[in-house]
Amino acid sequence: MKRVQVLCNENRSYRAFMSSPREYEVMEGKSTLSLSLNQHTCLCNVWQLTGIPCRHAMRAILHEGLDPQSFVHEWYLVEKYKLAYGHSIKPIPDQDRWPATEHPTILPPVIKRGVGRPCRNRKRSDDEERKGTRSKTIKCGKYEDFGHNKATCKGGAT
């Protein structure tokens, strides 16, 4: 219920336009998203994934003057929660009482340490971008010459 309240307040800058009965186009800045109140779908897919209307759908629901909580999926009802967790869960016995199996015991892999100090930089994959490297050319800040810097400058090109 709190999430629905927050969504009702978040979408004040959106504008909803009815394209057909219970079908809307909602403008969010320069982008336009289409949604269906009949099928409980929105182009952003948040409504389909979570079961809670997204902010675009909430704008259309409020535009039509309907109750937003009636569009929340039944998963979130208290009755469904009680049905899911109403049965007792039997405890698992201690590991000593587990039945024996004929399958071999799976052991963790052997850790193989390399020789020398470990590498400080992580190994990057082939498709990953490499770290940038500095140029080898030094430029003087005083005379704008290459080959030395401002601290070692002796008054001109070296």
Rank of each mutant, 00 (worst) to 15 (best):
A16E: 06
A16C: 03
A16R: 01
F17S: 08
M18R: 06
M18E: 15
S19T: 15
S20E: 11
P21K: 08
R22L: 14
E23M: 14
V26R: 06
V26L: 04
M27W: 10
E28P: 03
E28M: 12
S31Q: 10
S31F: 01
S31L: 12
S31A: 10
S31K: 10
S34Q: 15
S34Y: 09
S34P: 07
S36T: 10
L37K: 13
L37S: 09
N38P: 07
N38Y: 13
N38S: 12
N38C: 11
Q39I: 02
Q39A: 13
Q39E: 11
H40S: 11
H40E: 08
H40W: 07
T41P: 00
C42I: 07
C42G: 09
C42R: 11
L43I: 00
L43Y: 04
N45C: 08
N45L: 12
N45E: 08
V46Q: 08
V46E: 09
V46W: 07
W47M: 04
W47Y: 14
Q48H: 15
L49K: 14
G51L: 02
G51N: 03
G51H: 02
G51C: 04
I52E: 05
I52S: 02
C54I: 05
R55N: 12
M58V: 13
M58L: 12
R59I: 00
A60M: 03
A60G: 05
I61S: 06
I61C: 06
L62G: 06
H63D: 08
H63R: 08
H63L: 04
H63F: 03
E64H: 11
E64N: 14
G65W: 13
G65A: 15
P68S: 12
Q69P: 01
F71P: 05
F71Y: 14
V72R: 06
V72D: 05
E74W: 10
E74L: 13
W75Q: 01
W75T: 00
Y76V: 01
L77Q: 09
V78W: 04
E79R: 08
E79T: 13
E79Y: 08
K82E: 14
K82M: 13
A84H: 11
Y85I: 01
G86H: 11
H87P: 02
H87A: 12
I89L: 14
I89G: 08
K90R: 15
